[in-house]
Design a binder for these strands. Structure first.
Lengths: 255, 255
DNA sequence: GCAAAAGTGTTCATCGTACACCCATGG
DNA sequence: CCATGGGTGTACGATGAACACTTTTGC
């Protein structure tokens, strides 16, 4: 309510800056974990703000003058965590700009949604690097996060779940080479255990289109043995992740 | 690349404002039109900016100091067009913030996606009201619009098309009372003519769930006659527009 | 009568999924 | 041996969609 001088609209030659632009990134990955339900994890950092002492926050930066939002998101990943994700899936999630969401003034934060491969998680801690931590999404959703980051996180999780059904983003969460059981684990840990009830043969059948269109090809190799039983064959995905609206996967809604 | 003074991050007590926050609204409605394909229309205004002289633009305002983004969108509708939409469907679409999208400085624009009922289009032109115009979407998509508004528009159209399939937003585009053929016209003009190939009995069957869950009820009245043939029965929709992920409608992808 | 709206029923192909098998491989 | 990965085929139920036919209503 301060600064109430009548704002004139478009048409003004010089306009006063009235907000700070920030970018927050919700970075997901799938990693090994004792509990299979905790495989889906999100990158959180220690909040630097005194008010939120102790709370975790999403990775965020202020947007610099000549920078696009995507560039700012990339900069956050590289310089703040030292993460080396040569390619990642990045997509805008939404903008949070409640007048009072930051006590220091008007901060509009554009949230991004990102997926990184689990084999590109060579976290390189350096001097300027923040304390970054992979937290199982299941836990993160119950945590009190800084600012309105809890809202962003739950929006991101919802987006991930729905994108899993009509696009191939799952492959962006797997290493370059993976087995069918790996793929199955990603779907069952994100969409939910219902997929685990599916017969293994039916699961593979759901990807039949991908196999004969040649975007999902066996490498010929076989995974190293990781327990008893036959090791899985390795596959490689080489296709667009983008969601077409063809019904690409069954198991739309199960409970 | 100018203004490269190292920007310190969150943790700073006072931070300089570095962007102007704007809200642009892509307002859709369905109205009568000679060509049935032109029924879906979008609200455009004469661009006030000299550089874009002659080009049309989306309805937009700058966000005021104490205001939420949704409030700004509502203010744009009311005060700039005099439109009386007592209730409308409003949803955030995305944020455009390319450094050079506005020559006057950094303007981050949050685009909204809105649907108003055709019977609430009592446009009340007043003194402070802009020249607003309903333009068929089919034409608007081919026009050169101001700023990056063409991108926003096509994103909004894509969003509308996909939401039509898994939610009931179609009813937000119809008057309070409507006939089944009206409903059918909305689907066929937005999704595309393919729906018109459907048998009328099959079309109604697609909404069977709505009928026996009682959210789509006949008013008992009958529409005024508008040609030869029997006038359609009137219906009223009283349910949430929100999209659940149940497969709510068939005809997912046709060509 | 004609045309559009509305209602009822049938048929057919497709598809998701359960299930019953089979073999291969490594501990 | 056993557990896991991988492969093949079948059967059943659900459903989207085409089609045929009838009835109602207003010009």
């Amino acid at each position: 309510m301060k600064d109430r001088r009548e704002q004139r609209d478009i048409g003004e030659r010089a306009i006063a800056h009235n907000a700070v632009l920030a970018v927050d990134v919700v970075i997901f990955t799938v990693r090994e974990s004792e509990d299979p339900d905790d495989r889906l994890q999100v990158l959180l950092v220690k909040s630097e703000k005194a008010v939120f002492e102790g709370r975790m926050a999403l990775l965020g930066v202020l947007v610099q003058t000549g920078e696009t939002l995507e560039q700012a998101a990339g900069r956050a990943l590289r310089t703040k965590t030292g993460l080396d994700a040569s390619q990642w899936y990045l997509e805008q999630l939404g903008t949070w700009a409640e007048p009072e969401r930051d006590t220091r003034g008007r901060v509009a934060s554009v949230a991004y949604f990102a997926l990184v491969r689990s084999d590109q998680l060579t976290l390189v801690p350096g001097s300027t690097v923040l304390q970054a931590e992979w937290v199982p999404v299941r836990h993160a959703l119950k945590m009190k996060l800084a600012f309105d980051h809890a809202d962003m996180l739950s929006a991101a999780v919802a987006r991930l779940r729905s994108k899993m059904r009509y696009s191939w983003v799952a492959f962006q969460l797997l290493p370059e080479e993976f087995t069918i059981p790996d793929l199955r684990a990603v779907y069952s840990s994100i969409l939910d255990p219902s997929v685990a009830r599916l017969n293994s043969s039916n699961f593979k059948r759901a990807f039949a289109n991908l196999f004969d269109s040649g975007v999902l090809v066996p490498t010929g190799e076989r995974a190293g043995t990781q327990g008893r039983g036959r090791p899985g064959d390795l596959y490689r995905f080489s296709g667009p992740l983008a969601g077409t609206w063809e019904r690409e996967l069954p198991w739309h809604n199960r409970r």
